[in-house]
């Protein structure tokens, strides 16, 4: 029963959501919209489970005063501040909640991602070696795209920006299409396996 009920639920909802695409009926459309809303609600609860787990983990480290527990306190303070501001002061424009979002979260997030510029460049320098024809193609395409997007590229050769645009719009885009079609076919096959109950890894063990 612990495994059968979820498999039946998966099958029923999978078939229903698939069937409504082919059968146009107001009742089915309403049901489809309801199920989409249900998915969103359950997804939020799943997110809250993650948040609770985050809370337990940090509280545990603080209570045991493990190494560098002060940082765990900082994480919890950030969480508590946002939850307090969001629920008690509102999330409307000019609210303290959005002020924290704009002046703390957004700058920190974009700085974190900008740090990757250094690490990607460093990893590329260490990892990219023109060992064979394929790696040469990869290297040349990458360098051309990088140079084609900065004034230096045009200074080196007037054709570099043009070549970069051509690579992006023709061969790269075509290969992307081939990969997307492959992903689409793979996703459909996996979805069908999930609906009919062949693929059960989401159930976990036990």
């Amino acid at each position: 029963m612990r495994r059968q009920i979820p498999i039946v639920v998966c099958f029923v909802f999978g078939i229903f959501m698939l069937a409504q695409f082919f059968v146009s009926h107001p009742l089915l459309t309403r049901g489809y919209q309801n199920v989409l809303d249900w998915m969103q609600i359950i997804f939020v609860f799943a997110l809250l489970v993650g948040a609770l787990s985050f809370l337990i983990l940090h509280l545990d480290k603080i209570s045991k005063q493990q190494k560098e527990w002060g940082y765990n306190l900082v994480a919890l303070a950030g969480l508590a501040a946002m939850v307090f501001l969001g629920f008690f002061k509102g999330i409307q424009k000019d609210s303290p909640f959005l002020w924290v979002f704009d002046n703390l979260q957004v700058p920190m997030q974009s700085t974190m991602f900008s740090l990757l510029a250094f690490f990607v460049a460093s990893a590329a320098y260490r990892g990219f070696r023109a060992r064979n024809f394929q790696s040469v193609v990869l290297l040349v395409a990458g360098v051309l795209i990088i140079l084609g997007r900065v004034p230096l590229g045009e200074m080196l050769h007037s054709k570099i920006p043009e070549s970069a645009t051509w690579i992006l719009n023709v061969p790269s885009m075509a290969a992307r299409r081939g990969i997307l079609i492959g992903i689409g076919l793979g996703s459909i096959a996996t979805s069908l396996r999930i609906i009919v109950g062949i693929e059960r890894t989401y159930l976990g063990k036990g």
């Binding site: 997110l47 994480a75 303070a77 950030g78 501040a81 946002m82 939850v83 969001g86 997030q109 974190m112």
Partner: peptide, 12 residues
Amino acid sequence: LLVGISVGYFIV
């Protein structure tokens, strides 16, 4: 701090 604020933001 970023991790804590991000989790709080998404919860709210």
